[in-house]
């Protein structure tokens, strides 16, 4: 197998195997770039995004310490019977604590109003654009659980794949003698336009 043949196959099979990620990152960039359009489209339906599941009285001291706060959020979700692969705890202000349980497909939030001693549980209605943006924005290694962390590894792999596509793509282009000239024009023009944006934006 020659280097050129290896590069061709690597370019192809990597593309095919990571096709769902490539497509997801491409398509999900549309609602990011045109967020207001999708927001207005959804608002026109007139259906609230968050739907009330339950309300109940609750009174418990909220810890200040970050680690203890995470433990409090975890315990609260367990008490309410809310299960999900990921959760977040966020002290919105002095009287409000938000605890979220979420996955790519579902999202539930618990709002604990400390002054009113009340828990409100709400479920988020499914929105396809939010599924896409949620997948696009997910990354990092800070979440609990093997699967959540392995998604971070997948993001790294996709990034490595992008660099491999670029590298092998350039190599394959250089192996096509009839296209050196116009290819160099395309590459140089793109680089010049990009530099202009970098320096002038």
């Amino acid at each position: 197998m020659t280097i050129s043949h290896f590069c061709r196959r690597l370019h192809l099979y990597l593309g095919l195997a990571l096709l769902p990620w490539f497509l997801m990152y491409g398509v999900s960039s549309i609602p990011f770039a045109h967020g207001q359009f999708f927001q207005k489209l959804d608002e026109a339906r007139g259906v609230p995004l968050w739907q009330l599941r339950s309300e109940r009285p609750y009174d418990a001291p909220v810890p200040e310490n970050r680690e203890a706060l995470l433990g409090f959020g975890r315990k609260l979700l367990k008490e309410l019977g809310i299960e999900g692969p990921n959760f977040s705890v966020y002290r919105a202000n002095r009287t409000t604590l938000n605890v979220g349980s979420y996955s790519f497909l579902k999202s539930t939030r618990v709002v604990y109003s400390l002054d009113r001693k009340k828990l409100t549980v709400e479920d988020r209605r499914f929105r396809f654009d939010q599924l896409l943006t949620g997948m696009h924005a997910r990354g990092g290694f800070e979440r609990d659980g093997f699967l959540s962390k392995s998604w971070g590894v997948m993001v790294d792999l996709v990034c490595a794949a992008f660099l491999i596509w670029i590298g092998t793509g350039l190599y394959l282009w250089w192996g096509l003698p009839g296209h050196h000239g116009w290819g160099a024009v395309a590459l140089a023009t793109g680089t010049a336009v990009f530099l202009l944006f970098t320096l002038r934006l």
Binding site: G140, V155, C159, L187, G190, F194
Partner: peptide
């Protein structure tokens, strides 16, 4: 081919920035 050559700088930027965000910690 030509679209990829033209947009190479965008792809490099989006790839490197994704790596940075994935390792924000």
């Amino acid at each position: 081919l030509y679209l990829a050559l033209f947009f190479t700088p965008w792809l490099v930027m989006y790839t490197l920035s994704t790596l940075v965000m994935n390792h924000r910690a």
